[in-house]
Write a protein that binds this DNA or RNA. Structure first.
Lengths: 118, 118
DNA sequence: TAGTATAGTTAGCCGCGGCTAACTTGTCAA
DNA sequence: TTGACAAGTTAGCCGCGGCTAACTATACTA
């Protein structure tokens, strides 16, 4: 799983929470990517069994896809909060969290979660 | 400046501190990259005036190259310390710092430096 | 019913940044 | 002097992940 795949899954998850369905075009709009870029990405995610797509083009996360999406989303929220707690403005914190969330190890994230509780 | 360019400059800086000269082959060994990969990267860094290479193949950072290398190196050390201070083991902290150092904004890094003083 | 808008796909381009194979160049030792 | 090793370069391959152009298919509307 590459960083880009994680971003697609995370986006599908957040769109799912706010809408009754998610299509490729919704992902494309949300991420400001072209339709073909998203179409190809969805094909790969489907081939790897991270999402399924019904005959209407409605996208749902599989268990393994959801596991990744939720993992990344949790990191996103925790890292954002951590950054804001040390004085980073929300916009910057969100943008940076979006990049950090993909590159830190499980060990480090566990330590961050522990630290933020105090 | 891409992440890979930053890594090359940072590596050249650290090699410079420990050795009397730095050649492409030293960078290749340090980063476990092939000679051609480093050769091409050095050509680009030289074209963009981040390094100069003398007739012996000895590489030195220009002012702009050094500025970037030192910026990244400072981030590396600060982030490593931060992670270790919350209980991450040194190896993991170093590896993760190596990735985080390239993706955080100046604003966030400033906040991290401020926070770590306390 | 015909025209138009929307969604998706296919084909193919690009820059990035790794790689190998193979060549050149220079140095040093037998 | 020659042969071998070390360093660097050139040419070209690859996967990644964006992109546009152009096509198809569906559905709504005039």
């Amino acid at each position: 799983m590459q960083e880009s795949g994680e971003m697609y899954l995370e986006t599908i998850l957040t769109l799912s929470e706010n809408n009754s369905y998610v299509r490729s075009i919704d992902v494309a709009d949300a991420m400001s990517f072209s339709k073909p870029s998203v179409s190809r990405a969805m094909s790969k995610l489907k081939a790897d069994n991270y999402i399924s797509i019904d005959k209407n083009g409605f996208i749902t996360l599989t268990d393994s896809g959801r596991a990744i999406a939720e993992k990344i989303y949790e990191r996103h929220t925790v890292i954002s909060k951590l950054l804001m707690s040390i004085g980073v403005d929300e916009e910057t914190a969100t943008a940076d969290a979006c990049r950090i969330e993909h590159v830190i190890s499980d060990k480090t994230f566990a330590a961050v979660k522990k630290a933020i509780k105090k």
